[in-house]
Design a protein around this nucleic acid. Structure first.
Lengths: 151, 151
DNA sequence: TTGATTTAGTGGTATATGCCACCTTTGACG
DNA sequence: CGTCAAAGGTGGCATATACCACTAAATCAA
């Protein structure tokens, strides 16, 4: 248990996850700061970039994020002209998202900083340990807590 | 890589951490919902409970949370009379926090639900795996990213 | 075809969190 | 002492994220 930790904190999976997320989030945000993007925004731009003009619902599902939360998060990026949206011609309920030229440029810029943060993280934590962590996190993200526990 | 994941998502330590935190947060929140508390609030009440009328700065450091963020998070709990604050007589810059009787009762109620969520999580994920995950998260939370990488 | 249902998003409201500027209280020092 | 820097918080502003009620579009069913 790390110093400065009050008793009992380390028992809760959720609390530990949040705590680590705050820490790492601050670190990645810090490195990304020169780009003017938060790490969440950089990640979102990247998702949009690798997707094929993805629908909002698809992005939200990928990120395990509430659809309305995604809508809110998208707003500053639209305001700053990094992304734009358009209705799917075949199904006008669906709103697709894509990067603007400025968005692509900004993402390029941010990805360089991201690589610095990512590399340093792996240097500090260990490449193997980081990979195992991500694998466990991905596994947990895929658990259906409504199912009966595995036997 | 889980289904519904766009390419490349799993590479970023920060993004994976956030994604898993959203997922687990929703799950714990769901189970805690009958108490009217969010998981973050239950966790915060618990920290206050186990602390010895902790100062805000001490809580913030324990949770690796910005002091002002803690202040904001505390507000609804103060409004609902679950916690109260008072100046440290020996150093009036320091504001200490403690549970009210209602806060203790609400925490009792929430802890019962927390145990349900926690138990089910461990059943689904595996007790050992969960413990290892928490250990890694605690380790990462303790890393000083300003230091030179370990040799 | 038309009415009920489902699907995809929006907007409002509330909490979670961070940064920055600012204020007060201490504590150190000449 | 009186000044001044450091420590501990507050408030404002911005983003992150969730839930809910509501709207519009597409689908299904009779």
């Amino acid at each position: 248990m790390s110093k400065d930790t009050l008793p009992g904190l380390t028992a809760c999976n959720n609390a530990m996850l949040r705590r680590a997320t705050r820490k790492i989030g601050q670190y990645y945000d810090d490195v990304l700061a020169p780009s003017g993007l938060k790490a969440t925004q950089q990640g979102l731009l990247y998702q949009i970039h690798v997707g094929n003009e993805p629908a909002m619902g698809v992005i939200a599902a990928s990120l395990i994020m509430d659809l309305s939360a995604l809508g809110h998060t998208l707003k500053p990026l639209i305001r700053d002209s990094y992304v734009e949206t358009f209705a799917d011609p075949a199904d006008r309920r669906i709103k697709r998202v894509r990067l603007t030229p400025q968005g692509r440029a900004k993402l390029d810029e941010a990805m360089k900083l991201w690589q610095v943060a990512q590399q340093r993280f792996e240097d500090m934590v260990g490449k193997e340990k980081a990979a195992r962590l991500r694998a466990v996190l991905d596994e947990i993200a895929a658990v259906d807590f409504n199912e009966t526990p595995a036997s």
